[in-house]
């Protein structure tokens, strides 16, 4: 299912849960695992000095430095590695999201696993948000394969997941997320919850919607889920459709909790180039920060389209309100 898994770690405890999932998955699916850490931010022009992402201290780049980091990673994840031999450790300097994406592309990874702080109040969360948070965000946006973000201990192994929540905004990217969610649910035999949150705040700013109008919209959205996604599912009926109105990230979190979701799958696409603005506006980031289960972000069909499905023409059409 995943031939190559790229585990992008910050080499801090924040990634321990993610490490567990990554190694577990690699074991289960016989994937080759790429343990990858971007340890230094380039700084000071063309100079050789880099800023260590963990300590914030400056040091000169050199082959020995890299070797030391690799050794540290080896030790850090010794327990997880165990007797697994199909793994590589790689550490580079660069802007983290860029290097993770570069590596994923170079290695043709089928899945990227990343960690995240679960709560903003945790020590270092601010730093996390500014550096690692935007890294997660940008990797999620740029990756051509699914990105699995694990921020809390994952009690069940992925292949025992019983509830997969698929949140859609009917975008083209969402269709890729659907393919992944569906493929996964089918593969491991879990229930698929197809969910859409009617974003009332953004849709009709300043105007209060009548209840019957909302209900009409809900009915419409449900129909759209049926047309767009359910019609694509074959030999599979372990699913449910729900549409609720509210602020998308709140609704999806509430829904995931209510349904005992083991995994949330959604797409993440925003055109914002300014990372700060994108950071605030992102549903994915909010969901990742608050969800009690892992979140998979899927935006592109490249790694999930090998399902025997005929892509539907209007799958790309936007809801548009």
């Amino acid at each position: 299912m995943f031939e190559k898994i790229l585990f992008a770690t910050t080499a801090t405890p924040a990634c321990d849960h993610a490490a567990h999932v990554a190694f577990d998955l690699a074991k289960k699916y016989n994937s080759s695992l790429h343990l990858f850490h971007v340890f230094g931010l380039p700084s000071h022009g063309f100079g050789q000095q880099v800023t260590d992402v963990r300590t914030g201290k400056a040091d000169d780049y050199g082959t020995r430095y890299v070797e030391a980091i690799k050794k540290e990673l080896q030790e850090m994840y010794a327990d997880e590695i165990g007797d697994n031999s199909d793994y590589q450790i790689e550490s580079v300097i660069g802007v983290p999201h860029r290097e993770v994406l570069r590596m994923a592309r170079k290695e043709n990874a089928d899945l990227i696993v990343m960690g995240a702080h679960s709560r903003q109040e945790e020590p270092g969360a601010t730093r996390y948000r500014s550096v690692v948070g935007s890294t997660m965000q940008r990797v999620a946006k740029g990756a051509r394969c699914p990105v699995l973000i694990v921020s809390r201990p994952c009690t069940t192994c992925l292949w025992y997941f019983s509830n997969i929540i698929f949140g859609t905004d009917f975008s083209k990217a969402s269709y890729s997320a659907f393919l992944f969610a569906y493929q996964l649910a089918k593969e491991i035999g879990s229930k698929l919850w197809l969910f859409h949150a009617l974003d009332i705040s953004a849709m009709h700013a300043g105007k209060t919607l009548e209840q019957d109008e909302i209900e009409a919209q809900i009915a419409k959205a449900k129909q759209k889920i049926k047309d767009t996604y359910v019609s694509q599912m074959t030999d599979y009926d372990n699913y449910e459709i729900d549409v609720l109105e509210g602020i998308p990230y709140v609704e999806i979190l509430k829904y995931a909790r209510a349904k005992n979701g083991d995994l949330i799958v959604m797409s993440h696409h925003t055109r914002e180039v300014d990372p700060e603005q994108a950071l605030l506006g992102s549903t994915v980031e909010q969901v990742v920060l608050r969800a009690s289960c892992p979140v998979a972000s899927v935006n592109r069909p490249d790694k999930v389209a090998d399902l025997k499905l005929t892509p539907q023409a209007d799958a790309t059409e936007s809801e548009g309100g």
């Binding site: 022009g45 063309f46 100079g47 000169d60």
Partner: peptide, 13 residues
């Protein structure tokens, strides 16, 4: 403050 190569030279940080 960093022109002419000044930025990149560790010796003169």
């Amino acid at each position: 403050g960093g022109g002419g190569g000044f930025n990149g030279i560790g010796r003169y940080r």
